[in-house]
Design a protein around this nucleic acid. Structure first.
Lengths: 335, 335
DNA sequence: CGGTTCCAGGAAAGCGCTTACCTCAGGACT
DNA sequence: AGTCCTGAGGTAAGCGCTTTCCTGGAACCG
């Protein structure tokens, strides 16, 4: 493993000079030395040790990202936005999957902290469990105390920079849409009740139910396609009053579609997030859109130009109803 | 920012003792000192500087992953497998998106090299451009020369550890299936011709065509859904002899389905990769399955227990045809 | 020509940790 | 009583790099 010292020796200069040349420091250097050093670098295949650099400069270059699961399309979209902004700013991105486990999340915060990242972006619903939440806050605060910035996406209970999709409003939009179509009893396939996303969307749905005088039948699944399929199978076997389904994300809605196909039934269904797949299933899914990539971009932007302001900045991002073919007026089944 | 020295001072011990206690070194220490140090750690919210640790130990802990694009479901699946194995081994994973750009890929190799990762896994088709390929090889070799391990997924031209899905055989499977159903002229929506994945799958398809006496009409897209949709629109407007389509990945196949729906036409279509979405579109997509998560797991396993063997290890992973509803015998259109 | 500026380049002090080696008691042994 | 351990803890030498400060000589001035 070639070191700077090797390069310097090889080129017959001091490490100081070699370092300056390699990093293109403003200090003037003779062309000849520069050439010698560069030649040595090439010959020795020298690659600077990033850890030593980090230690010597106090410059923090990397940024950390904690998501529930990158391979979930929802987070994949967010991550895409995060990465775009980060790499545009020349930052190295370290991505961590928390798998919705607060403990793991804390570990990762410490890990990223230890790696001296300049900022951490945490995406994904928060935890209702207040012990977990406050321990997390502790960790975040410790990190921020050392000059790091934290931005969260969709986690409004954290007091700090945040970009917040309006989940409550989204829930209301979904509910209002269904009730306006004449549905009176709507089955809701919710996510885990420990997540704020679930709670918020549910709250919006409930507000719509109250306002339109409808009824909600809530069951809980795990935000996965298969969970949605299973939940729907039960719904179809249950209360015949149910004429429409609201799934709290598109993955579960897709599973619901499969269950209905299997059962040979067709209820109106609305999803959430408007993931790319929504327009490619049959019927194309009506969904409450959240601009995921944009959420990521905004959060990373916020995290990177941190320190500019000292008081928490909060950006709200509205939800939007995307009408497609999976919802129809109650009177004319079969849409 | 609290340092080890701060903790030591606070607890009234030397940094050596503090370090030993914090890292749980085997050296025996009085209970009292241990308690004092741990208390200081908690009070000061001390988090060790990972860079300093890396530098002091010569231990390499992180592993790097380079993929074309994590938010592409194909790579999301692979990444999932990579992560599973890596975190199970207590490794930090650094994920980099090359966006199919060899130059960026080289940058990332150097970056990961600089970060002293223990291993690098590169997933995704290689580049046919021989200049790019050889420069890449150069970089990899330099990294390996310092004791790092490299494993590639689906890139057979790299001389080193590799796990290789059998793309050629997959292409053959797809072609054979279509020709056996009685189709004689098959339109192929290929990926960029600069990628080996494209070339290999195409070769298999061609072998099937030769063997069954069929004809291929190849057009190139970019492996995206929209690219597939556009290509299909052209195909439908072209040669009426075409009765089936082979898309070289599922994303493009999904786009093709959309184009057919728009045009009101229904040709048999087969996809590639068997991504999760394949079973949820209508008609459900017949596809050549590659065990993506497994590819990731195997590659990471290989990369991590490196140095065990010195000669390159190559694992071949077979492709498998998954029959669904998007292909049917030529005689009975409408499947 | 002596003195003042410049300027290219080097010496060396860290950055925050780990760890090999050393010290110093107290106890066991001959 | 004198020698040797042995266990608990400290000292300090790096790990590979950056950067401040210093040096020696060339260029410039009156």
């Amino acid at each position: 493993m070639a070191t700077l010292a090797d390069v310097a020796r090889h080129a017959g200069v001091s490490t100081a000079t070699a370092s300056r040349i390699i990093n293109g420091s403003p200090k003037p250097v003779t062309e000849e030395l520069r050439a010698r050093v560069l030649a040595a670098v090439a010959e020795l295949r020298y690659v600077p040790n990033a850890h030593a650099q980090m230690l010597a400069r106090s410059h923090r270059n990397a940024v950390g990202v904690i998501v529930h699961d990158v391979s979930d399309p929802y987070f994949a979209e967010i991550t895409r936005g995060l990465q775009r902004v980060a790499t545009a700013n020349g930052r190295l991105v370290i991505i961590c999957n928390s798998f919705r486990d607060p403990a793991r999340e804390m570990e990762y915060i410490d890990l990223l902290h230890a790696h001296q990242v300049a900022a951490i972006v945490i995406a994904g619903s928060g935890y209702l469990d207040s012990t977990a939440a406050s321990e997390l806050d502790d960790r975040m605060r410790a990190f921020e105390a050392t000059g790091g910035r934290i931005a969260v996406i969709g986690r409004h209970q954290h007091p700090g920079d945040a970009v917040l999709p309006d989940n409550e409003e989204g829930g209301f939009l979904a509910g209002a849409h269904l009730f306006e179509l004449g549905h009176r009893t709507v089955a809701v396939i919710a996510g885990p009740s420990s997540l704020t996303t679930t709670v918020d969307r549910l709250a919006g749905l409930q507000r719509a139910a109250d306002q339109f005088g409808g009824t909600l039948q809530v069951s809980h699944a795990d935000f996965t396609r298969d969970g949605g399929e299973a939940a729907t199978t039960e719904i179809l076997a249950g209360d015949p009053e149910v004429t429409a389904i609201a799934a709290l994300n598109d993955s579960m809605a897709v599973g619901a579609l499969a269950a209905m196909r299997t059962a040979g039934r067709r209820l109106s269904i609305i999803g959430f997030d408007d993931m790319p797949i929504a327009r490619d299933v049959t019927p194309a899914l009506t969904s409450v859109r959240l601009p995921l990539t944009e959420l990521g971009e905004r959060a990373m932007t916020m995290a990177l130009d941190g320190a500019a302001t000292d008081e928490p900045r909060v950006e709200h991002v509205p939800a939007e109803l995307i009408l497609r073919e999976s919802t129809w007026p109650l009177a004319q089944p079969g849409g």
